Computed example of a mutant assay.
Amino acid sequence: MPGHQLRYDVNCSILFTELPLLDRPAAAKAAGFDAVEFWWPFAEAVPPAREVEAFLAAVHDADVQLVGLNFFAGDMPGGDRGVLSWPARTAEFRENVELVAMIGAATGCRSFNALYGNRTADLHPTVQEETAVANLAFAAATVARIGGTVLVEPVSGPQPYPLRTAADAVAVLDQLLVERDVRNLALLADLYHLTVNGDDVPKVLAEHADRIGHVQIADAPGRHQPGTGELDLDGHLHQLERAGYHGWVGLEYLPDGPSAESFEWLPRHRRGSGADQTDEGKR
Rank of each mutant, 00 (worst) to 15 (best):
A121W: 11
S13T: 06
G147R: 05
E92T: 09
T107Y: 05
D210V: 02
L151T: 00
Q128Y: 05
N184Q: 10
P255F: 13
V204W: 04
L151E: 02
R164A: 10
C12Y: 00
Y116W: 14
E51C: 07
A30S: 13
A31Q: 09
R7Y: 01
G3W: 00
A260G: 14
Y253E: 05
L194K: 12
T228G: 05
V215H: 06
Y245L: 01
D279K: 15
D199R: 01
E252Q: 14
D181G: 15
T165F: 13
R183Y: 06
G79E: 06
H269E: 14
S111L: 10
F55Q: 06
D168H: 15
V143E: 04
G147A: 08
L177T: 14
L173I: 06
L194I: 14
A114H: 03
E44N: 08
D190Y: 09
S111N: 12
P258N: 11
A134M: 10
A114R: 00
G257T: 15
Q159I: 14
A91H: 10
A27R: 06
G108L: 08
E98N: 13
S85K: 10
E264W: 14
W265P: 03
K203F: 12
L194H: 13
L237P: 07
A167N: 14
A49F: 03
K29W: 02
S262Q: 11
R183C: 11
D234P: 02
P20H: 04
F16P: 00
A54P: 02
I103C: 07
A169R: 06
G229K: 05
V196G: 02
T165A: 12
E129T: 15
P47M: 04
A30P: 03
A121M: 12
Y192D: 04
V97L: 06
V10H: 05
S85E: 12
A35W: 08
E53C: 07
W265S: 08
K203G: 15
T126M: 13
A206T: 09
Q175A: 15
R89P: 08
H269W: 15
V196Y: 00
E230Y: 11
P258I: 12
A91N: 09
V64C: 01
V100C: 13
P2Q: 07
R223Y: 09
N11G: 05
G235E: 02
A206P: 00
A35D: 03
N197I: 03
R183H: 14
P154T: 10
A189W: 09
A45V: 00
P77H: 04
L136N: 06
